[in-house]
């Protein structure tokens, strides 16, 4: 059910995504993440079109961390920030981070290879039902995503919504 992808550019970094539904302790989880007790990023899955979006954000976060150019204070917060089309940090957290009342949560962990124990420990803190990560597309709020990323219908004639979103994420620092 986990989706694990090695970052080809950074071979000692691997990204694992876990999707939970019917989550009952979102507020508690968010607080733990803020306090640093959860070493992962908690994302609002309704703003995701596809898990690839998270990989792009995580790859960029690791890259910026290694060259010392992160805009936020930690790798996990940088992942959330990179998902947003704007350079406003608090807005990024509000829209792409988990909010207290959320019922679904995408948990993203950047780790070394073969750290299954670590993943289990983090997952154990979520009080919810784990579902396959690919199911995220059932949760996406497409209208909201199109509006936030300003994707016009004509753009979707030449590519997918995912392409449009990923392009904006990749280029936002020079727009």
């Amino acid at each position: 059910m986990n989706l694990t992808q090695e970052l080809e550019l950074f071979p000692d970094h691997t990204v694992t995504q876990m999707l939970f539904k019917e989550v009952k302790n979102a507020a508690e989880l968010r607080q733990s993440a803020v306090d640093g007790r959860i070493n992962g990023a908690l994302i609002n899955p309704t703003m995701l079109v596809n898990p690839f979006q998270v990989l792009v954000a995580a790859n960029k976060a690791v890259h910026l961390q290694l060259i010392g150019k992160m805009k936020t204070r930690s790798l996990n917060s940088e992942i959330i920030f990179n998902l947003s089309p704007t350079n406003n940090i608090s807005e990024a957290f509000k829209r792409f981070g988990t909010s207290d009342g959320d019922e679904s949560v995408m948990l993203v962990v950047v780790h070394c290879k073969n750290e299954s124990q670590l993943l289990e420990d983090i997952a154990a803190q979520v009080d919810g039902r784990q579902v396959p990560v690919e199911d995220v597309s059932w949760l996406s709020d497409l209208a909201k995503i199109r509006k936030l990323f300003k994707v016009a219908p004509q753009e979707e004639t030449c590519g997918t919504l995912l392409d449009a979103v990923v392009c904006r994420m990749a280029i936002k620092d020079v727009m």
């Binding site: 792009v56 790859n59 960029k60 890259h63 060259i67 016009a152 004509q154 753009e155 004639t157 030449c158 590519g159 392409d163 449009a164 990923v166 392009c167 904006r168 990749a170 280029i171 020079v174 727009m175």
Partner: peptide, 23 residues
């Protein structure tokens, strides 16, 4: 990358950008 995005916005097919390393 800017021009690619501008074209895509207008519905002109151009390859999607996944990542840019400015260093």
């Amino acid at each position: 990358v800017r021009s690619i995005l501008r074209c895509r916005r207008a519905g002109i097919p151009a390859p999607a950008v996944y990542f840019v390393d400015y260093t």
